Amino acid sequence: MGRHLNLAKSYFGTDTRGILEGGRYALLHSRSLELDDLRPYVAGDDVRDIDWRASARSGSVLTKRFVSEKHHKILLVADTGRNMTALAPSGEVKRVVAANVMGAVGLIALGRSDEVGMVYGDSTGSATIRNRRSETHIESMLERFHSRSAEDVGTSEIVGQLNYVVRAHRRRLLLIIVSDEPDVSSDLEEVLKQLQGRHDLIWLMITDMPAVGGVDGEQDGYDVATGGFVPNGYALGPRVLNAYRAAEQHRVAQLDEFLSVNGVRFSRIDGSADIRRGLVAVSES
């Protein structure tokens, strides 16, 4: 197993049972080679499944019933823009957490032979990796995300990547969006409506370290989107600090309502150690 998947496994573990399973997530149905039992043949059954020896012994036509398998066709939609160079509450760079989140999804996919692809990018454009199965494919995909997000990237524009998906992917997919918390906008609402009619959507949001903390012993923050510094809590004072926290609570509540109204299941992830909790939560929602 490659370094990206191994790192994801160190946080997520190997137990993938119950995560992203169930009827609403299963987009591709097939059967395994594992025989379940025999049952009487009925019109419409595949004649290739008839067990002729068992039929001869029983005096009636019997057909084989195989264990049903449910596979996913997963498309990761990832932000490689400047927002992902900020810090998560865990102290990790958000792009590192995002890579581990997608690695965990890859581990889940490997256990079920799911197909996984990716659309990733920033304001300068989007790139795509076609859906395939295999450990090598997923590791290569994570390496390409890592390389792209470590470059001199443009600003984050997840709406651009989502619009790319609208244009390029018409067959039903399980879309797993990995980015920071998006800004609520009419453009985002419009693209989500287009995607929701065709795909299943999950949004895994890597949260930001608070821009302003307490009033004691704190340094100025840095806004990766604008390049500007954010005054610390001591400089701002208690009144402004309380107003900031109230505004943040309002923003989070507004985003939660927006995603719920638009039929998007979502979870916030504060760091790599929080990945399992986040994936379990979105699986149960």
Rank of each mutant, 00 (worst) to 15 (best):
D270H: 07
S283F: 04
D46L: 12
A8H: 10
S126V: 04
Y25D: 02
V165K: 02
S60E: 11
S90K: 08
D122K: 06
V105M: 10
D152L: 05
V264D: 06
G278Q: 08
S55G: 10
L38N: 03
A247G: 08
E115L: 15
G117E: 03
H29N: 06
G160E: 08
V47L: 14
P231A: 13
V77S: 09
A8S: 14
M205R: 14
Y164N: 10
S68E: 14
L38T: 03
L259G: 05
S123Q: 14
G271V: 09
P231R: 04
G233R: 08
D15S: 14
P40Y: 08
G81N: 12
S285Q: 15
S285Y: 06
D37H: 15
L174I: 07
A54C: 12
G237Q: 12
F12C: 04
L87K: 10
M118E: 01
D114P: 12
W203T: 00
H146C: 08
D152A: 14
R245E: 10
E181M: 15
D256W: 04
D274V: 06
T16Y: 04
G59S: 10
N262C: 09
P89R: 05
S285G: 12
V178F: 07
V165P: 03
H250L: 14
I177K: 01
H71S: 11
A211M: 04
P89Y: 09
G111D: 13
I138R: 01
H199W: 07
A168C: 01
L236D: 09
R172N: 05
A127V: 07
A43W: 06
V264Q: 09
R277M: 02
V42A: 13
N163V: 00
Y25R: 08
N163T: 00
G214C: 05
E181T: 09
Q161F: 07
D274I: 10
S267A: 15
H71K: 15
H169F: 08
V96Y: 02
Y25Q: 01
R167N: 09
R48I: 02
S134Q: 09
A43C: 01
V240I: 13
N232P: 08
R171F: 04
A43F: 10
S90C: 06
V224S: 03
